[in-house]
C-alpha cells in the first residue's frame, strides 16, 4: 500500500522536502489575498467598528490551535496503536506550532477584548478553556523533554495528548454550554454564517493560509526531528554530506 511506503522515514523525508515550498507558496499567496480582502474589501462592522478586523488573525489562529491539537492527538494515537516512529515524530513536530497559535489566539483575543469588553482578560469558559489548551501543549512538550528514553517520552506525551483532547469540544461548545462573555459562533456548521460575505471570505482565506503555513512548518520541523532522532544521513535529499563523509573514508 502507498501509505506504508510513505510512512518509512527514508521515503517521507525527501517527499516532505519537496512539498514544503508548495505549501509555503500557497500560504503566502493566500495571506496576501486574505489581508487585502480583510483590510480593503470587507466593510466596517456596524457594531464593533474597525476593531473587528482582528478576527482575520484571531479566528484562524483559534481554529488552528484546536485543529492542530486534534491532529497531534490522532498522530499520537496512531503511534501508540501501530508503534510507528513517524507518527510520534509527527505529533512531536505539531506541538510547537499548535502552542504558537494558541498563544496568538489568546493574545489577539486580549487585543479585541480590551476595546470591546473593556478588559484584556475575563475568566469565562471560552477564554479559560483556551488557556488550558496552551498549558496542555506546554505539558506535551515538557513531558517529552523531561524523559530521556525516547520510547517512553513518545508514549507518555502521547497519552497526555490523547487524554487532553477532551478539552477541544469543551472550547468549541463553551459559548453554547455556558453563559460566556465571549460571543457565540458567527460561523456555525448548523446554521451557516451570520457575517457579511466579504468578511467571511477574508476569514476563510486567512484560515486556509494559516493551515498551509502550519503544514509547511510542521513538515520542516518533522525533518529536523528525523535528523535529530535517527541521525542517519542516508535519506537526505542533498547527498553532499554523505559524499563528503564517504570521500573522507
Amino acid at each position: 500500500m502507498i501509505w506504508s511506503k510513505y510512512s518509512a522515514p527514508q521515503t517521507f523525508y525527501p517527499l516532505a522536502g519537496r512539498l514544503i515550498p508548495w505549501f509555503a507558496a500557497v500560504a503566502i499567496i493566500l495571506m496576501v489575498v486574505g489581508l487585502y480582502m480583510g483590510f480593503f474589501v470587507a466593510p466596517t462592522d456596524f457594531q464593533q467598528g474597525e476593531s473587528y478586523r482582528i478576527i482575520f488573525v484571531h479566528v484562524p489562529a483559534a481554529w488552528m490551535s484546536m485543529f492542530l491539537y486534534v491532529v497531534m492527538a490522532i498522530w499520537a494515537g496512531v503511534g501508540m496503536g501501530l508503534n510507528a516512529r513517524l507518527s510520534f515524530m509527527m505529533a512531536q513536530a505539531i506541538a510547537p506550532t499548535g502552542a504558537m497559535f494558541t498563544f496568538l489566539a489568546l493574545l489577539t483575543g486580549a487585543m479585541w477584548g480590551k476595546p470591546t469588553w473593556g478588559a484584556w482578560w475575563v475568566w469565562d469558559a471560552r477564554l479559560t478553556s483556551e488557556l488550558i489548551l496552551l498549558f496542555q501543549y506546554a505539558g506535551v512538550m515538557l513531558l517529552r523533554t523531561s524523559i530521556d528514553d525516547l520510547r517512553r517520552a513518545d508514549r507518555s506525551s502521547a497519552v497526555f495528548a490523547l487524554v487532553g483532547v477532551v478539552n477541544v469540544p469543551i472550547i468549541y461548545y463553551s459559548v453554547q454550554w455556558w453563559n460566556t462573555l465571549h460571543q457565540g459562533a458567527s460561523v456555525s456548521m448548523a446554521t451557516g454564517s451570520k457575517m457579511a460575505a466579504t468578511m467571511l471570505m477574508a476569514m476563510l482565506i486567512m484560515t486556509i493560509a494559516f493551515w498551509m503555513y502550519s503544514i509547511a512548518v510542521i513538515l520542516a520541523r518533522v525533518r529536523c526531528v528525523m535528523i535529530e532522532r535517527e541521525s542517519l544521513p542516508t535519506w537526505d535529499d542533498k547527498p553532499a554530506v554523505i559524499h563528503e563523509a564517504v570521500e573522507a573514508r
Binding site: 476593531s51 478586523r53 482582528i54 488573525v57 484571531h58 489562529a61 489577539t108 487585543m111
Partner: peptide
C-alpha cells in the same frame, strides 16, 4: 489593538 494583533502574528 489591530496592528498589535497583526504584528504579533
Amino acid at each position: 489593538y489591530v496592528w498589535t494583533s497583526f504584528l504579533a502574528t
